[in-house]
Design a protein around this nucleic acid. Structure first.
Length: 639
DNA sequence: AGCACGCCGACT
DNA sequence: GTCGGCGTGCTC
C-alpha cells in the first residue's frame, strides 16, 4: 500500500545538517505545516527543530516519530522558508540546518531561565535638526503603498539624514526592519524611530542577554512589536508582511559575517525584500561600489537629496615634498594642529599601525620578520617584545641582527607607540592614546568627550575613527599614514580608503580640516576625496574594476581548506580539470598560509563571469576535492 | 587487558 | 550540537 504523503515530513534542526524525514502521528497531522516548531528524537535526545516541508526520503530505514508540535502558527512563515532555501543554495556548502541556526537565536530552540534584566538603550535626545524635503522620498512612499518590491539607494548627505529619513518613510501600522551595522549605532538611531513607532518598536542585537533576546523574539512573534531595529541578525526577524527593510550605512563591512556561515546582511535584506514584496532602502553617505553599479543598471532606484551640508576641507599633503620635523608629522600638520590647540579645539591624529616600530639592521639592511609568515615583525617598547600582527607570535626582542649578527638594530617606521613619543616631543602635550589594548581594558565609551579628560590631542588607530562618536567636534584631524590603507592587497582597498577618510570628516567642525599625509597624492582616490566628489571616484573605480574583471564585473568565491589530507598535487589536478573548457573562469592560487594553529591552509580564489558559472565550478571543484576526506573546507561567496 | 582521552562522522 | 565508535597510549 502507498504511504500517505502527509504521514511524513522533513524536519530541520539548528545544526550543520540537512533535513531528516520523520513520521507524523495522526493527532498532529493537522498542525504539521511548514515552518512549525517541533520536538523530535535525534540520536538519544529530544531536540527542537522546524518542519521544512514534504518528506525527501520517506523510504529511509529507522524513521522516527515527531514527539510534539508547538504553537498554532508557523514560527517561520513561507517567505522566511524561501529565504532559508535560497541562502543554502547561494552560499553553496551551507547545510540548511546551518542556515536555520543563523536565522533564529538559540533561545528559540532551548529553554531559557528566568528573564534576566540587562542594560537597555538609553534614549538620547537629538539636538541637531535635519531638514528633509519630503517630495524626494515620494517614490519610496509610493512603492510602500503599492506593496511592491523595489530597492532604493539613498545617497545621503549626512549620517543624520539617514536617521531622520526613517521618521518620514516608516509606514504607520505596517511592519518594518531597520538595520544598522554595529550595536553602537542603535542608540544613535533609536530616538528617531521611537518618536514614530513608540511601543511597536523592539531592539534586536547580539549584545542583548539571552533573556532579553527571547523576550524581544516573543514580542515579534506575537505581533506586539512590528518594527525591529537591530544589527545583521535582525534581517531574519520573524515579522509577518514586512513592508519596509532599511539598511543604514549600507557600505559598512560589519554587515558581513566573518565566521560560520559567511553572508552579507545587506544582500539578504534585498533578497528578503524581493521575496516579501517590500520596499528596501539602502542608505549611506558613501554607498558601496556594488550598490552604485546596481543603481546605474537601474536595478536600484537612486535617490540623491540635493541638500547642502557644509563639510570640512580635505587637504592632501605630499610627504615627498613636505618638510617633516618629526617622523610622520609634516610641518603643515604641526602648524595647523598648533593653531587649533591655541583656539582650544580638540584635534585627532590617526595612525593605522599598532606597536612602536619595525627593527632594521643598520649594517645589512634586513628587517626582522616572522619565521612563519615572513612579514615584518613589530617591536613593542613596553615589554620589549617582537610580535607578528598576522599570526600573533610573540618573541623577546633580539639584541643583534638575525641575518648578520651585528648589534646595530634601529627602529624604522612608526607605530602608535612611537607616534605618542613624537607628539610629546613636538607639542609638549601628552596625547590621549586609543587603541585596541585600551578598549579591551576599558569599556568603549559612548561619547569621546567622556574620556578626553581635558586632553587636547587624541591619537588612535583606525578603531578610533570607526567606533568613537563625539558630541564635541574636532578642530582638525590628520591621517598620518594614509598609504597603508591604500596599499592593502585587496580589490576594495581604494573604496575602503575613501570610506574611512570621508567618515572622519563627520567628526570635524564645519570649517575645520582633514589632512591626509601620503606619498602618492596623485592617486585618484585622494584626488576625488579632496573635492568631496564621490560620484567621480565611483566612475573611475568602476572603470578599473571593469579592466581587472573584479566585482561587480565578476563573481568571486574564496575557497579555503586545511587538514591532514591537504595535497598540493591533487589540488593542482582538480584546478586543471575545473579550468579545462571553461573560459569564463579564472582560478587564483592556491596560496598556502599558516593558520594560527600552525598547520597549512590552502586558499583559492574563483573568479567567474556569472553567478551561474561560479556556482557550477565551485560545486564541481568541491566534488573533485571531496574524494579524499579530512579536509575542512570553507567557501565564502562575494568575499 | 583495561581504561582514559581525543578525534571523527553520523544523526531520519 | 551531541553522541557513540574507534584508535592511541598509558597504567595496573
Amino acid at each position: 500500500m502507498l504511504k500517505s504523503i502527509m504521514e511524513f515530513v522533513d524536519v530541520l534542526f539548528p545544526i550543520n545538517l540537512g533535513p531528516l524525514t520523520y513520521k507524523c502521528p495522526t493527532h498532529l497531522t493537522s498542525r504539521a505545516l511548514p515552518g512549525m516548531l517541533v520536538s523530535a528524537p535525534l540520536k538519544t535526545q529530544i531536540t527542537k527543530g522546524i518542519i521544512l516541508g514534504k518528506p525527501s526520503n520517506p523510504e529511509a530505514k529507522g524513521i522516527k516519530t515527531i514527539s510534539d508540535i508547538h504553537g498554532e502558527s508557523p514560527l517561520l512563515e513561507p517567505p522566511l522558508l524561501k529565504l532559508l532555501n535560497w541562502m543554502a543554495d547561494y552560499y553553496i556548502i551551507a547545510n540548511k540546518g546551518l542556515v536555520l541556526k543563523n536565522m533564529l537565536p538559540q533561545e528559540t530552540f532551548k529553554k531559557v531561565k528566568a528573564r534576566s534584566k540587562g542594560k537597555t538603550e538609553e534614549d538620547k535626545e537629538s539636538n541637531e535638526i535635519v531638514e528633509i524635503d519630503e517630495n524626494i522620498l515620494s517614490k519610496i512612499k509610493e512603492s510602500l503603498s503599492k506593496r511592491e518590491y523595489k530597492t532604493f539607494l539613498v545617497h545621503a548627505p549626512s549620517p543624520l539624514y539617514e536617521s531622520a529619513m526613517i521618521t518620514k518613510i516608516l509606514p504607520q501600522g505596517k511592519s518594518a526592519i531597520i538595520l544598522v551595522p554595529e550595536i553602537v549605532h542603535i542608540s544613535h538611531t533609536l530616538p528617531f524611530i521611537k518618536e514614530i513607532a513608540g511601543e511597536r518598536l523592539c531592539v534586536l542585537h547580539s549584545g542583548l542577554s539571552k533573556g532579553q533576546r527571547s523576550e524581544a523574539m516573543e514580542k515579534i512573534i506575537s505581533g506586539q512589536c512590528n518594527v525591529v531595529l537591530g544589527t545583521r541578525m535582525a534581517v531574519f526577524a520573524p515579522l509577518k508582511n514586512v513592508s519596509l527593510i532599511s539598511v543604514m550605512h549600507e557600505h559598512n563591512s560589519s554587515y558581513r559575517t566573518e565566521e560560520g556561515l559567511r553572508f552579507n546582511a545587506r544582500d539578504i535584506a534585498v533578497m528578503r525584500g524581493y521575496i516579501e514584496k517590500s520596499a528596501v532602502v539602502l542608505s549611506s553617505i558613501c554607498p558601496s561600489i556594488e550598490s552604485v553599479y546596481n543603481s546605474k543598471r537601474n536595478k536600484y532606484t537612486l535617490i540623491r537629496p540635493d541638500v547642502y551640508s557644509q563639510r570640512p576641507k580635505i587637504r592632501i599633503l605630499n610627504m615627498r615634498n613636505e618638510r617633516q620635523p618629526a617622523p610622520n608629522l609634516s610641518k603643515t600638520v604641526i602648524n595647523e594642529a598648533l593653531s587649533s590647540i591655541r583656539k582650544n579645539e580638540k584635534i585627532m591624529f590617526v595612525i593605522n599601525r599598532k606597536g612602536y616600530s619595525m627593527l632594521t639592521c643598520k649594517e645589512c639592511g634586513s628587517t626582522e620578520t616572522c619565521g612563519k609568515c615572513s612579514i615584518p615583525l613589530m617591536f613593542y617598547k613596553g615589554d620589549k617584545s617582537l610580535r607578528c600582527h598576522y599570526c600573533g607570535a610573540i618573541a623577546g626582542s633580539p639584541e643583534k641582527c638575525r641575518r648578520c649578527g651585528s648589534f646595530s638594530l634601529e627602529p624604522t617606521g612608526s607605530g602608535i607607540e612611537r607616534m605618542e613619543e613624537n607628539i610629546k616631543k613636538v607639542f609638549d602635550i601628552e596625547p590621549l592614546r586609543i587603541d585596541s589594548n585600551m578598549l579591551k581594558r576599558k569599556r568603549i565609551p559612548e561619547d569621546l568627550s567622556d574620556i578626553t579628560e581635558g586632553k587636547s590631542i587624541i591619537l588612535g588607530t583606525k578603531l578610533l575613527t570607526k567606533r568613537l562618536h563625539s558630541s564635541e567636534k574636532l578642530g582638525m584631524a590628520a591621517v598620518l599614514n594614509a598609504d597603508s590603507y591604500l596599499n592593502q592587497p585587496d580589490f576594495r582597498s581604494a573604496e575602503r580608503t575613501f570610506h574611512e577618510m570621508y567618515g572622519i570628516t563627520d567628526k570635524i567642525k564645519p570649517g575645520g580640516s582633514l589632512f591626509i599625509q601620503t606619498r602618492m597624492p596623485q592617486n585618484y582616490t585622494f584626488r576625488h576625496l579632496k573635492n568631496h566628489d564621490y560620484a567621480s571616484f565611483c566612475d573611475e573605480e568602476l572603470e578599473k574594476r571593469k579592466e581587472m574583471l573584479y566585482p561587480p564585473f565578476s563573481k568571486l568565491a574564496l575557497i579555503t581548506f586545511n587538514g591532514r589530507d591537504c595535497d598540493a598535487v591533487r589540488t593542482e589536478k582538480a584546478i586543471r580539470e575545473i579550468l579545462s573548457g571553461n573560459k569564463a573562469l579564472e582560478v587564483l592560487g592556491p596560496s598556502v598560509t599558516p593558520t594560527k594553529k600552525g598547520e597549512k591552509e590552502y586558499s583559492l580564489l574563483f573568479k567567474a563571469a556569472s553567478k551561474k558559472n561560479l556556482h557550477f565550478s565551485v560545486k564541481r571543484f568541491l566534488e573533485l576535492l571531496g574524494s579524499y576526506k579530512c579536509l575542512n573546507v570553507k567557501v565564502a561567496i562575494d568575499p
